[in-house]
């Protein structure tokens, strides 16, 4: 399938409802109001962004920097909270472009703002083969541990951690 030319745009309190619409359409889990409130208030436009095709918001990625728990050196990681593309626009490389743009940002800031970041990680439902293939085949993520009962209201409730060492 051909690639679509897309633009990126920031997520803010004026368009946060669009993120909600995209996430509702893409994910079986519903994110709480606090997720969107935070996103509207203090998201970093380099890490959280919409993908626009001819003026329509059709996908979004939301990433944050978080400390690696119990890390003795106090290092941190990029955590992909959500990555979604509306069904009709899938298989046009839009998800990849969103992840790539985050990776590019990391590259440009690896010795700057993101100098404490060592890895990028994401949770994927154990049944979500598409997602696993996407992260592992295209971006070289490695399958990590199984987290049991990570999700509350969907079946199966377990997920894998996928991660990629960045340095």
């Amino acid at each position: 399938m051909g690639k679509l030319s897309i633009d990126f745009g920031m997520i803010n309190s004026d368009n946060i409802e669009q993120l909600k619409k995209i996430n509702q359409a893409c994910f079986p889990v519903a994110y709480g109001d606090s997720f969107y409130r935070d996103m509207a208030k203090k998201s970093d436009e380099n890490l959280c962004k919409f993908a626009y095709y001819s003026g329509l918001a059709i996908g979004a990625v939301c990433t944050r920097v978080e400390p690696i728990p119990d890390d003795p050196n106090g290092r941190s990681r990029l955590y992909i909270m959500t990555l979604g593309v509306l069904a009709a626009y899938r298989n046009h490389g839009i998800g990849s472009k969103l992840v790539e743009s985050v990776m590019e940002y990391y590259e440009s800031e690896k010795d700057g703002k993101l100098s404490t970041v060592d890895e990028i990680m994401v949770h994927t439902q154990t049944s979500n083969m598409d997602a696993m293939n996407f992260y592992m085949d295209r971006f070289g993520f490695e399958k990590g541990e199984l987290v049991e009962n990570y999700y509350k209201r969907i079946d199966p409730p377990h997920c894998y951690v996928l991660r990629k060492k960045l340095r």
């Binding site: 619409k21 509702q24 359409a25 329509l56 918001a57 059709i58 509306l86």
Partner: peptide, 8 residues
């Protein structure tokens, strides 16, 4: 339409 692209 709304189902296809709910953001417009």
């Amino acid at each position: 339409c709304i189902e296809h692209t709910p953001t417009a």
